[in-house]
Simulated scan of single mutants.
Amino acid sequence: MAMASSTSDPGTVEPLDHEQLMTALAAAEVPWNDITFLEVTGSTNSDLVSKATAGEAATGSVIIADSQTAGRGRLGREWESEPGTTLSFSVMLAAPAPATQLLPLVVGLAVVRAASPGEQATIELKWPNDLLVDGKKAAGILAEAVPGGAVVGCGINVSTPVERLPVPEATSLALHGIEVERTTLLAQVLIETFAGYDRLVEAGYNPEASGLLAEFRRRCGTLGREVRVQLPDQTSVTGRATDVDDQGRLVLEGPDGQQILSVGDVTHLRH
């Protein structure tokens, strides 16, 4: 997959080009046909969840914000995104209840494919869906169930300079020499998202038959590692991550045997 390069050095501020985005999506014939652009919002996920709950959103609905003041992450964490250097967006995808846990995998893989830098850096997913570049977090994904499917939100540090990053473990694409315009990256993520989603739907939401699970396993840097997983109740478990099952859950082999985890915050300990 080819991407247009740019001069997105760390700290570069780029406005989103709405017309360029819509032209790229139309050319790819992907049905993102309900797109809302916001200059600033608290959380694109909160906004789209509200629309979906009210019956005003369906597959094809997208909310994009140039800046978020109360972005939402796993385990109730909040974060902010600065205008011009990050991407913040949420999409609505329909699926039967058992398959909604697969939808963040679809989006995570779309981000990996869209941001793939070739040999410039090691880019991989950390279960459940953080994007790591050379071991540091450059993007995060959060899915929230809504009637008829899920809202999947994504935040990507595109050209955030090191002094603006929230924690030492964070990074941005530009800090690793990955040069891509924000508009180009967003268009490609949305195109790849719908392509992956369409394959999943065509396979009857079967992640094996669609190829989703095989690709996720290949791209997931968590598998084969010793990890610590913080659970929603603030307890944690440790063990070796051995697989991701057909519901997108992490299979952990630990001192007390095998555990199947559907949610948690993973820390990679060692190979």
Rank of each mutant, 00 (worst) to 15 (best):
V151G: 11
V151C: 14
G153A: 14
G153K: 04
C154V: 11
G155M: 03
G155H: 03
G155V: 15
I156D: 12
I156Y: 12
N157F: 02
N157V: 00
V158R: 06
V158K: 07
S159N: 12
S159V: 11
S159I: 09
T160V: 06
T160K: 05
T160N: 07
P161C: 06
V162A: 11
R164A: 10
R164M: 08
R164V: 01
L165E: 14
L165T: 06
P166V: 08
P166H: 03
V167R: 13
P168W: 02
P168Q: 07
E169K: 12
E169L: 13
E169V: 11
E169D: 13
A170C: 09
A170H: 08
A170I: 04
T171S: 10
T171W: 05
S172T: 12
S172A: 13
S172G: 11
L173M: 08
L175A: 08
L175V: 05
L175G: 05
L175F: 12
H176A: 13
H176P: 12
H176L: 13
G177P: 01
G177Q: 01
E179G: 11
V180S: 02
V180R: 07
V180N: 05
V180E: 04
R182C: 00
R182T: 00
T183R: 14
T183M: 08
T183N: 12
T184F: 13
T184E: 14
T184H: 09
L185T: 04
L185Y: 03
L185K: 03
L185V: 00
L185A: 09
L185H: 03
L185C: 04
L186M: 09
L186R: 02
L186P: 01
L186N: 05
A187F: 00
A187W: 01
V189M: 09
L190S: 01
L190M: 01
I191A: 01
I191D: 00
E192F: 07
T193V: 11
T193K: 08
T193I: 13
T193R: 07
F194S: 05
F194H: 13
F194L: 06
A195T: 05
A195M: 10
G196W: 10
Y197M: 02
Y197E: 06
D198F: 11
D198K: 09
D198G: 14
D198S: 09
D198C: 10
R199T: 15
R199Q: 09
L200A: 02
V201C: 03
V201D: 04
E202P: 10
